[in-house]
């Protein structure tokens, strides 16, 4: 390491710089939080049903097979835009019903095909998770994913 840099200079650069970058990061996070609830996520449409749907999503650890907005386990399809994939833009009611029917009909039991367990969701829970997936599909994700295939 260069002779020009003393240990105390290195220490001061480390602590000063880290503090600076953390403050900038925290500030930008605060703005992003505000942007999410005010602009990008239709927070006014985040109904109780959507919130319950998110808890159904979590209780069954859907993310440990699927991805949502690209984050998760890559073992099963992306669900951030599943509502779009099921034609929800033209026929929201039909897409919701199709999603509910798909979940309820698992597992397929087809040999050599990835199996989704049956989570024994009630009608209410199926409704909630479909509402959640509809709400997620309307988040402004800067145009991601590139194709409807997710």
């Amino acid at each position: 390491m260069s002779e020009g840099l003393t240990k105390s200079q290195a220490r001061n650069i480390f602590f000063g710089g880290s503090l600076f970058f953390f403050v900038v990061f925290a500030g930008l996070t605060a703005h992003s939080h505000y942007y999410a609830v005010s602009t990008s996520t239709n927070a006014q449409n985040l109904t109780e049903s959507v919130e319950r749907g998110k808890r159904v999503w979590e209780r069954n650890a859907c993310i440990d097979c699927h991805t949502i907005l690209g984050e998760g386990a890559y073992f099963a399809p992306e669900l951030g835009n599943v509502f779009v994939r099921y034609g929800g833009k033209d026929d929201p009611a039909g897409a919701k019903e199709a999603i509910k029917a798909w979940i309820a009909s698992q597992p397929t039991g087809i040999p050599g095909r990835r199996q989704m367990p049956n989570f024994h969701l009630t009608d209410g829970e199926l409704n909630d998770i479909a509402d959640f997936l509809e709400w997620v599909s309307k988040i402004n994700t800067q145009g991601w994913p590139p194709k409807d295939s997710g």
Binding site: S32, A36, S40, I139, N140, T141, Q142, W144, P145
Partner: peptide
Amino acid sequence: YWIGTPGYW
């Protein structure tokens, strides 16, 4: 980038 956060990221 793609989770509903601003484009500047």
